[in-house]
């Protein structure tokens, strides 16, 4: 379950950025506090990062910082798009979520309904699980309720969605990303999705 980590030194070597830049981006909140993972090693305390996340993020910052100020870059990186809204019709047109899912979960909403970024995210997550064939439509309904009721409570902090099944009965859990969760042997983990990555993916598709 552990994420692939990269040490600070390796990170600077592979990306070619300097200590100063890294600390500057941390101050500007371009790199979230939670990504700085302090661990004891034989050489003393060292800082590690979730490899895939930090490499993608640094790549983005490096590409954007030529055209934008760091504060502008920060605005583009905050995990949830605060003021982003999209009409249902436009959302359908963008073809981000399958028509089947939209029909099932947003069928009753008229075309001019305006969705927040969070709502789009819920559809995206559900569609993702439907596409893999791991989740049924009824379970999707339940997942939508779980996300709606509980995802906002994380207030943008990283969390994972865990989808488990035992003897055919399914359940959804939202847990903060740094938490350890253990189950009894009868539990099958159908899917574990880091919401941060899904947010990034959806942002990439929307912007």
């Amino acid at each position: 379950m552990d994420r692939d980590l990269i040490s600070k030194k390796e990170l600077l070597d592979t990306t070619g950025i300097s200590y100063g830049q890294l600390y500057r981006w941390k101050r500007k909140q371009l790199i979230p506090e939670e990504w700085f993972i302090r661990k004891s090693t034989f050489t003393g305390q060292e800082t590690f990062f979730p490899k895939d996340l930090i490499l993608a993020r640094i790549d983005k910052i490096v590409n954007m910082k030529d055209d934008l100020s760091l504060d502008q870059v920060a605005g583009k990186l905050s995990p949830l798009l605060q003021d982003y809204e999209l009409r249902k019709a436009a959302f359908v047109e963008r073809n981000i979520v399958s028509l089947v899912a939209i029909h099932q979960f947003a069928g009753k909403d008229p075309d001019h309904t305006v969705y927040s970024f969070e709502m789009l995210l819920y559809f995206y997550v559900i569609d993702k699980l439907l596409q893999t064939g791991e989740m049924t439509m009824e379970e999707g309904e339940r997942l939508l309720t779980v996300l709606r009721d509980h995802f906002p409570k994380f207030e943008g902090k990283p969390c994972d969605l865990i989808f488990i099944r035992k003897m055919g009965v399914s359940s959804f859990l939202l847990v903060s990303s740094d938490a350890h969760v253990y189950f009894d042997n009868g539990i099958k983990i159908v899917a574990k999705l880091p919401m941060v990555e899904l947010i990034e993916q959806l942002r990439g598709k929307l912007i």
Partner: peptide, 21 residues
């Protein structure tokens, strides 16, 4: 414990590790 930076110029300093350019 640790000092990291691009440009480091110190005196009368006790540190475990200094990393810089």
């Amino acid at each position: 414990g640790v000092i990291e930076g691009d440009d480091i110029d110190v005196e009368h300093t006790k540190a475990d590790v200094i990393r810089g350019s």
